[in-house]
Write a protein that binds this DNA or RNA. Sequence first.
RNA 1: GGCGCAUUCGUCUAGCGGCCUAGGACGCUACCCUCUCAAGGUAGAGACCACGGGUUCGAAUCCCGUAUGCGCUACCA
Length: 489
Amino acid sequence: MSNVRVRFAPSPTGKPHTGNIRTAVFDWLFARHNGGKMILRIEDTDRERLDPTAAEEMIRALKWVGIDWDEGPDIGGPHAPYLQSDRRETHLEYANELIKSGNAYRCYCTRERLEQLRKTQEERGLPTGYDRRCRYLPPEERARYEESGATYTIRLAMPREGTVTWNDAVFGDMSWEYRLVDDQVIVKSDGFALYHLAATVDDHLMEITHVIRGEEWLSSTPKHIFIYHSLGWTPPTFVHTTHILGPGRRKLSKREASSEFMNFAAEGYLPEAVLNFVSLIGWTPGDDRELLSPHELIESFSLEGLVGHPAILDEEKLLWYNGQYIRSLSLPELAKRALPFLIKSGLVEQNPSPEKLNYLASVIALEQERIKTLADVASVADFFLLDDDKYEFDVKAVAKWFNAAGVGERLAWVREKLAALSLFNAETIEQVIRLGIEKFSVKPGEVIHPVRVAVSGRTVGPGLYELIDVLGRDRSLRRLDRALTLVSK
RNA sequence: GGCGCAUUCGUCUAGCGGCCUAGGACGCUACCCUCUCAAGGUAGAGACCACGGGUUCGAAUCCCGUAUGCGCUACCA
């Protein structure tokens, strides 16, 4: 399949949804796996729901997660335009062709009549749908409508009998009775084509070979196939992907942070982790691998691995992925990515000096295996960045370690020894602590823990010797002094 | 209501008739490592394969029914 062409066709009606992006990911992996083309098309035919910033945000989200495309509204391509509203004339052209061949017709019914119709159908427990009044309009009545200049929509004249079949790449052999399919409106009274027509025409004209889209489209595929056939075209392969659900197997609601895709970026997730995670929701490489680089994802991707049932997005697992990727990052890279989060939390100034950047790197080196998101750096390493008289002491930590007998004496002793050290590094610091343990004949923890609380304010964190080393002698001594004032005499 | 799709550990999934007394991962528990927290390592608990019928020498795997969930049923996508 070297001529594979797939398209991701979002409608710009709001913030990018995780489900949308996952579909884009599948498109992209499939295109790249086959050496085909990835096309971005913006389906903005719904002028009422249009959100002017949505397309940009979509592009930003796609780029963030690492997806690129070969043709699109931003870069053009051989099948331009890629903004669906710019293709209006083309859609109309084919709508008229459908009318000419008797596969579509103008419908003059008012919205009011349609609403009334639906209401009675619902009341009587009948299947809802258009009653095809205008399809069988007497010629003279039709002429009257035309002369009066009445507005109209264009509807598909669906076959009243027969069955349509196709092979869905995910769900396998599908078959549908045509008589159950409604005479769908394909052109609105405002002259814009509806999805069914627009997408079908564009997909064909853009030579799309595989239509990868959400399973909500499964039920309308018969309409699309009917359009393809009516126009004498060959339908593409349909690939209907199942939905991503929220906790409780409910639809991923806007309430869930994970539904809005770029929240992942804001929360400090790495794009490569998100890509890996999202790829594995509803798709499996077929083996036991969990950690796959973008390259490996592309290499392993196949339609056969697509799963036929919806999946719940498990944020705990995403967190694990993120931790894995954070630990695999080089130090400079991690520092670079964490910096914006530090700045945002006010721990680091806007344009830090090279010295500060250096210090940051050594801090992050100590915390790398302790964080799961970039945002965690701020909470876990704040004491490194706060002034020596500003970092906070954890109340419980103080209560536990500063009240024991002899703590003040040990802390003061350590303070003096550290001050006297000619060479100040993790190794010599450890020697001091060890010496203290021996001198006071106490358990290691009885020296180590109070010192840790003294210099960091808490009981958890990196190894004490490295911690003090990074903090530096002057700051450590100041902190020890500050802690001494808190120790019960 | 009609039509369609789905149903394996809490979660993501492997499985495409015998290799399954159902495998992996996240999470959970215990232990090891250790100055704490992590990370890492080891072990464990966790699924009567939704339920009921078939088909077959043999079914998680094929067929039918039921239940449940989801989707579609718009001049939204």
